[in-house]
Design a protein around this nucleic acid. Structure first.
Length: 566
RNA sequence: AGGGGUGUAGCCAAGUGGUAAGGCACUGGAUUUUGAUUCCAGCAUUCGUAGGUUCAAGUCCUGCCACCCCUGCCA
C-alpha cells in the first residue's frame, strides 16, 4: 500500500508494536499521516534520556514520511523559563533533527483550551471546586479506598460557568479554587478521581506575562494540544500509562471530534553510574562540582557534545535500547561507550600525541629531519594521510619503556627493539638515570634500512609505539575525565533519594589536567574536531581553547587488550 | 475495593502454536606498523514458578511468586 507522500507501506518493517499499529491504522484508513510531537517543558537542559524520546518521536515520523513538531509544554509558569527554546533547537539540530514547526503551547492553545473547559462545564462534565489542596488530597481516597465526592460537585452548569469566569477574572486567590473534571471519585485509577483541570496561579508566565491567572494542568492540556495541532501519535514514557484513560477521556469529552490522537508509551532510559535527575544535576552545577551545564562529565546533550560524543553515537545507542517493555530500562555505561567508539573509530583522524613524555636520543642520527606519512584513518583510505617528522631527538610515552617489563610486554626495554609508528625500528642501548635514580632519557640507535614502507632490514618487531619529534611538536593541555559517579554507585538516583550525600557518591578528581606533546599537524585543529591519539584514545578540541593554546578533552580511551598477565 | 505494567543469559532484546535471532559485556583464537579496528569461535537443553490443553507451548488456559508505576492545584 502506497501512502500519499509516496512511502510504500509494504517496504516498511515494523520494529515495535507502535509501528505495527501505525501500519494497521493506515490500512484501516484511520491514519492519513504520522504526526508526532516533541514536548519539552522549557525548564532545563536536555540529557541522554531526552534524546531517546526525541529520537523515537522523529524517527517514527520519518519512517512514515510524517512530521514532528517541537512544542513547548509551558503550562506551569512557576517552573518555566524563556531561555530554552533556542538551546532545544540547537540540540535538535545537533542530533540531526529539524522540527516541522515550533509551537509554544501557551501562546498557541490557551484560548482554545479555555473554551473547551467552558464547553465541558456547560455539558456538566466539569465543576468549580473550592476545596483546598489539602482537602482535595484528603478526599481523594487511597490506593485501596474510594475517594469522597467534593461538596461542590453538583453545582449547576450556569453556576460553574460563572465561578470559572470568576477564576479567570482573578476573583479567587491562588489555591482557592480549581476546575475539576467530573469523572468518578471511586475509580480504581487515581487519575480518574475528578482530576484538576485548571488551577489559580498568579505568576508571570515567561511568554504571556500576566495575561492569565489560571493555568491548565498537563493531563487536561496535553491531549487537547495534541488534538488541536493534529498530532496522530503522542509518544511519552511509561510512567504515563496510567494517564492514558484520562487522556482518552479528555479527547472524548473535551475534543469530541472524530479525529483522535493516541498516546503510546515507551520505556524510560537510565544508565548505570549516571546522574540524570534535573534536580541533582542542578545541585552539581550550583555547588560547583562541575563547570556548568555543558561540563564534559555531564549527561546533558551539551555536555556529551563537548566531551566529544557524536550525535550518531547517541542516536545509535538510544535506538539499540529500543522501545522497551518496562517502565525504566537501565543499561551499563559500556553500552553507550560502545557506540561512541564505533563512530569515532570511523571518523576520527589519527594523530600522534605523547601524553607523558620520555626523551629519546637517536645517537646514530644526524641533525637533519625526515618526513614520513601517517594514515589519517587506516579504515578509510579516502581520509588521506598527513606528514610527520623524524629526527634525532624524539619523545615516547613513559609507559612504553620499562626497566622491569611484565610478561608479554611488547614495548621498549633495555637492549630491546621497538618500531616507531611510521618511522624506524630503534634499539635501546643505554638508559640514562637522573640523580634520583629515575629514568631521565634513553639513548637509542635507529636501524637505517627499517623505514616504514621500505623496510629491508628483515627485522621482526613485536611492538609498535607512537612518538613525536622534538622538532615537530608543541604543548597542549589534556583534560582527563573519569565518570562523575563512583563505580560502586550503579544507581546514584536511588542512593541520593535514600539520603546518601552527593559528595559521597562523586568520584574525587574526576577531572585532571595534564600537558602533552602533540605533533604539529594538530596545530590547526578547530573546536569540536575529533582525533584519535594513536594507542591512547579519542580526544576533541575543547571550546576553552585559544589560538595559541589548545585544550583537548578525553572523549574516551581506546580499548586496551593488554593485560599484565598473572 | 485497589488499579495498571513487566518477567527470555550479567545487561538490552527478538520471538504472535512447529523445537530459543541479534547486540553489549565476557572468554578463547586469527590478522594487524594503533595490545585499537577487523575476523572467527564460545557463551540459555530452556524462557519467574506450579499445573493444565495440544502430536507439538517462551507462545494458549489456570493458580501462585517477584519486581516496577499510581493517592501534585508538577510535567
Amino acid at each position: 500500500m502506497k501512502l500519499a507522500n509516496g512511502i510504500d507501506l509494504d517496504n516498511i518493517t515494523p520494529e515495535n508494536e507502535l509501528e505495527e499499529e501505525i501500519i494497521a491504522d493506515f490500512k484501516a484508513g484511520k491514519t492519513k499521516e504520522v504526526i508526532t510531537r516533541c514536548p519539552p517543558e522549557p525548564s532545563g537542559y536536555w540529557h541522554i534520556a531526552h534524546a531517546k524520546a526525541w529520537t523515537i518521536d522523529f524517527e517514527t515520523a520519518k519512517k512514515f514520511g510524517g512530521k514532528t513538531y517541537l512544542r513547548m509544554d509551558d503550562t506551569n509558569p512557576l517552573k518555566e523559563e524563556g531561555e530554552f527554546s533556542d538551546s532545544y533547537m540547537q540540540d535538535l539540530a545537533w542530533l540531526g533533527y529539524k522540527p516541522d514547526k515550533l509551537i509554544f503551547a501557551s501562546e498557541a492553545y490557551f484560548d482554545d483550551i479555555y473554551k473547551i473547559a467552558e464547553q465541558m462545564i456547560m455539558e456538566g462534565k466539569a465543576y468549580v471546586c473550592e476545596l483546598t489542596a489539602d482537602e482535595v488530597s484528603a478526599t481523594r481516597g487511597t490506593l485501596t479506598e474510594p475517594g469522597k465526592e467534593s461538596p461542590y460537585r453538583n453545582r449547576t452548569p450556569e453556576e460553574n460557568l460563572r465561578l470559572f469566569r470568576d477564576m479567570r477574572d482573578g476573583k479567587f486567590e491562588d489555591g482557592k479554587a480549581t476546575l475539576r473534571a467530573k469523572i468518578d471519585m471511586a475509580h480504581p485509577n487515581m487519575n480518574m478521581r475528578d482530576p484538576v483541570m485548571y488551577r489559580v496561579l498568579r505568576a508571570k508566565h515567561y511568554k504571556l506575562g500576566n495575561k492569565w491567572c489560571i493555568y491548565p494542568m498537563y493531563d487536561f492540556a496535553h491531549p487537547l494540544e495534541d488534538a488541536l495541532e493534529g498530532v496522530t501519535y503522542s509518544l511519552c514514557s511509561k510512567e504515563f500509562l496510567d494517564h492514558r484513560p484520562l487522556y482518552d477521556w479528555f479527547i472524548e469529552n473535551g475534543w469530541k471530534k472524530p479525529f483522535a490522537p493516541k498516546q503510546r508509551e515507551f520505556s524510560r532510559l537510565t544508565i548505570e553510574n549516571v546522574i540524570i535527575g534535573k534536580r541533582y544535576l542542578k545541585q552539581l552545577v550550583n555547588e560547583g562540582y562541575v563547570n556548568g551545564w555543558d561540563d564534559p562529565r555531564f549527561p546533558t546533550l551539551v555536555g556529551v557534545r563537548r566531551r566529544g560524543y557524536t550525535a550518531k553515537a547517541i542516536k545509535d545507542f538510544v535506538k539499540s535500547v529500543g522501545w522497551g517493555n518496562v517502565l525504566e530500562v537501565t543499561v551499563p555505561y559500556s553500552a553507550l561507550e560502545y557506540y561512541v567508539r564505533e563512530d569515532l573509530n570511523a571518523i576520527a583522524t589519527r594523530t600522534m600525541v605523547v601524553l607523558d613524555p620520555l626523551k629519546v636520543v637517536i645517537t646514530n642520527y644526524g641533525d637533519e629531519t625526515e618526513e614520513f606519512e601517517i594514515e589519517n584513518n587506516p579504515n578509510n583510505e579516502a581520509a588521506g594521510k598527513h606528514k610527520s617528522i623524524f629526527s634525532k631527538e624524539i619523545y615516547i610515552e613513559k609507559e612504553d619503556f620499562s626497566l622491569n617489563p611484565p610478561p608479554k610486554y611488547n614495548r621498549l626495554v633495555e637492549g630491546g627493539i621497538v618500531r616507531l609508528k611510521g618511522a624506524y625500528i630503534i634499539k635501546c642501548n643505554k638508559v640514562v638515570l637522573d640523580k634520583n635514580g629515575e629514568v631521565d632519557h634513553l639513548e637509542c640507535e635507529y636501524i637505517p634500512n627499517s623505514k616504514s614502507g621500505n623496510d629491508t632490514s628483515g627485522i621482526k618487531c613485536k611492538g609498535t609505539i607512537h612518538f613525536v619529534s622534538a622538532k615537530n611538536c608543541f604543548e597542549v593541555t589534556i583534560r582527563n575525565f573519569k565518570n562523575l559517579v563512583k563505580d560502586e554507585y550503579k544507581n546514584p538516583a536511588k542512593a541520593l533519594s535514600e539520603g546518601t550525600p552527593i559528595s559521597e557518591i562523586l568520584e574525587p578528581n574526576s577531572l585532571t589536567e595534564t600537558t602533552a606533546l602533540a605533533e604539529n599537524f594538530l596545530k590547526n585543529a578547530k573546536i569540536e574536531d575529533k582525533f584519535q591519539f594513536m594507542r591512547k584514545g579519542y580526544y576533541c578540541v575543547d571550546k576553552d581553547s585559544t589560538k595559541d593554546h589548545l585544550i583537548f578533552n578525553l572523549t574516551i580511551s581506546l580499548k586496551d587488550g593488554f593485560k599484565i598477565s598473572k
